[in-house]
Computed example of a mutant assay.
Amino acid sequence: MTDAYRGPAVVVLGDVEHHALVDLSIHRDSEWGRISLQSWDGVVDAAPEIDWFNSPEADEVTLRMPDGREGRFVATAGALGSGQVEICGTGPAPFGDF
Results as ranks from 00 to 15, higher is better:
residue 28 R to A: 11
residue 95 F to K: 09
residue 31 E to Y: 13
residue 39 S to N: 08
residue 57 E to C: 02
residue 36 S to D: 15
residue 61 V to N: 06
residue 66 P to N: 08
residue 68 G to R: 01
residue 62 T to F: 13
residue 51 D to Y: 06
residue 83 G to A: 15
residue 18 H to S: 08
residue 90 T to F: 07
residue 21 L to C: 05
residue 19 H to T: 13
residue 75 A to H: 01
residue 64 R to S: 01
residue 90 T to V: 11
residue 72 R to N: 02
residue 78 G to M: 01
residue 1 M to W: 12
residue 87 I to D: 05
residue 97 D to S: 11
residue 80 L to F: 12
residue 56 P to A: 10
residue 23 D to M: 09
residue 13 L to K: 02
residue 48 P to L: 03
residue 24 L to E: 06
residue 45 D to P: 00
residue 6 R to L: 07
residue 47 A to P: 00
residue 29 D to C: 01
residue 59 D to R: 08
residue 55 S to D: 15
residue 10 V to L: 10
residue 75 A to C: 10
residue 72 R to S: 12
residue 61 V to Y: 03
residue 51 D to S: 03
residue 61 V to H: 01
residue 25 S to H: 07
residue 18 H to L: 08
residue 15 D to P: 09
residue 86 E to K: 03
residue 70 E to M: 12
residue 74 V to S: 13
residue 18 H to E: 12
residue 9 A to I: 05
residue 10 V to W: 08
residue 60 E to K: 10
residue 52 W to A: 05
residue 88 C to N: 14
residue 76 T to F: 04
residue 92 P to K: 13
residue 96 G to P: 11
residue 54 N to K: 14
residue 68 G to Q: 02
residue 42 G to N: 05
residue 79 A to E: 10
residue 74 V to A: 13
residue 77 A to H: 06
residue 16 V to P: 07
residue 89 G to C: 07
residue 17 E to F: 11
residue 96 G to H: 02
residue 16 V to G: 01
residue 46 A to K: 02
residue 35 I to R: 03
residue 54 N to R: 15
residue 28 R to V: 08
residue 75 A to Y: 02
residue 50 I to C: 00
residue 14 G to F: 05
residue 98 F to G: 14
residue 83 G to S: 06
residue 96 G to D: 05
residue 54 N to D: 13
residue 13 L to P: 00
residue 29 D to K: 11
residue 50 I to K: 04
residue 42 G to T: 08
residue 90 T to K: 14
residue 3 D to L: 06
residue 71 G to Y: 01
residue 95 F to I: 05
residue 27 H to Y: 08
residue 49 E to V: 13
residue 54 N to Q: 14
residue 43 V to K: 11
residue 61 V to D: 04
residue 57 E to P: 00
residue 2 T to Y: 10
residue 61 V to E: 06
residue 52 W to L: 03
residue 48 P to N: 09
residue 81 G to W: 03
residue 37 L to G: 05
residue 4 A to P: 01
residue 63 L to I: 03
residue 74 V to T: 13
residue 19 H to V: 09
residue 71 G to L: 04
residue 41 D to M: 03
residue 19 H to G: 10
residue 54 N to C: 12
residue 31 E to R: 13
residue 8 P to A: 14
residue 89 G to A: 11
residue 82 S to L: 04
residue 44 V to K: 00
residue 6 R to N: 14
residue 56 P to V: 05
residue 8 P to R: 07
residue 53 F to K: 08
